[in-house]
Amino acid sequence: MSDPTRDPLPPPASAAPLDRLLAGPVRVVNIGLEQFATDLAGNGAAVVHVEWAPPAAGDTKLAALLAKLGS
């Protein structure tokens, strides 16, 4: 009988690209919350931070209006 707390997780279907991604030094583009970039940089990763927030701070009604108005 398998023990889900002990058995290793099955490998993801596309493990190879992920392996390649992490095989060398990590280079990160962080979008949104700056703290992630700060933490990674503190651990020696090369990080470029992009300031981004969802339109209208996530207000879906205003965001829908903005989309119709071409903003």
Partner: peptide, 10 residues
Amino acid sequence: IDVRKVVSTG
């Protein structure tokens, strides 16, 4: 000032 940009960016 574009009111759309103010609302969009916050």
